[in-house]
Design a protein around this nucleic acid. Structure first.
Length: 307
DNA sequence: TAAGCGTGGCT
DNA sequence: TAGCCAAGCTT
């Protein structure tokens, strides 16, 4: 066996030594977010999880409120063209999420009687829902016992238990095993723990400028006890953006989002000088179902119904 | 498994 | 200033 970065440090705290302080801290410091209120329901939780994938809370808040007011139930969204979801997504980024959320709403309406399924496997089968989101919805909306492994939780575990600054680039089997071993037995406590450990990573045990003076488990944290050694190993993969197809796609879609009428090719051509890359970006958007080509070189957001 | 996929605020 | 970073999913 190769050494695993998720193995416990010699000074790793026991699970029981972590649960009470972190859950207690959460009770005092949890943010009052709309998707955490009882009235949000499972649909509100699910919408928030889609929007929060790779996107900060502050930018999600206004779009979330607008979305839930317009489409209070999955069937309300499913009844609209997918392009309306893309338009309402605004500038949250990664607009394929809007398409997938719309597709999930259609599937929920058709297969689950309009109610967000509580079963983990059923959630996982919906478009746009992967390992993390399925566990998050099952845990946050339905109070179930699941290991909820997002980037915040992975970082908290890497530090507090494993004793390193950052988790691996991709989630490993060792991390999943560790997360399961730390999960409280009691279902309600497990759900509380999932939300609390995540919030700790989001507010205190942040990627940069972590504030150990505000951390409820700083006395037991393996990384801190080791002297907070700097990250070793391969650098974490950075994201390039300027000059990429992604940037061109973003510019093209921004024009179409704000247009009421279908947009002529010439208007789209104005957003980017380089014709080969511009064409490739537009073709990609069409292939992804984010843009619908009409006759005569005119484009719009998709009006197609999902089948 | 690693690359592709948006956007904007922060340091 | 120019990266770095933010509750991932899909192929």
């Amino acid at each position: 066996m190769t050494a695993t970065t998720a193995s416990a440090s010699p000074t790793a705290p026991s699970p029981a030594a972590l649960h009470d302080p972190v859950i207690g801290w959460f009770g005092e410091h949890a943010r009052d977010l709309p998707w955490r209120r009882p009235e949000a329901g499972a649909w509100g939780v699910m919408v928030s999880e889609f929007m929060l994938q790779q996107t900060p809370v502050s930018r999600v808040l206004p779009v979330y409120e607008h979305w839930l007011a317009r489409w209070p139930r999955p069937a309300d969204l499913a009844a609209e063209p997918s392009g309306e979801a893309v338009r309402a997504w605004g500038r949250l980024g990664y607009p394929r999420r809007a398409l997938r959320l719309h597709g999930a709403a259609v599937a929920i309406t058709e297969r689950h009687g309009g109610d967000v399924p509580a079963d983990h496997a059923h959630l996982l089968a919906l478009p746009g829902i992967g390992e993390y989101t399925a566990a998050a919805v099952a845990s946050f909306a339905y109070g179930q016992r699941h290991a909820v492994l997002d980037t915040n939780v992975r970082r908290v575990f890497a530090r507090a238990v494993t004793g390193v600054q950052y988790p691996p680039n991709a989630t490993t089997a060792a991390e999943r095993k560790l997360a399961r071993s730390l999960l409280p037995e009691d279902e309600q406590t497990a759900a509380r723990w999932a939300a609390a450990s995540m919030e700790l990573g989001a507010l205190v045990c942040t990627a940069k400028n972590e504030d150990c003076s505000r951390c409820p488990i700083s006395a037991q944290c393996a990384w801190r006890l080791a002297g907070k050694p700097a990250h070793e190993g391969p650098p974490r993969r950075g994201q390039t953006y300027a000059g990429t197809d992604r940037q061109v796609r973003g510019k093209l879609l921004a024009v179409l989002r704000e247009a009421v009428e279908p947009v002529p090719q010439a208007v789209l051509d104005a957003v980017w000088d380089e014709p080969v890359q511009r064409a490739r970006a537009l073709d990609g958007l069409v292939a992804d179902g984010l843009v619908e080509p009409l006759a005569n070189g005119v484009y719009r957001l998709p009006h197609t119904s999902v089948t």
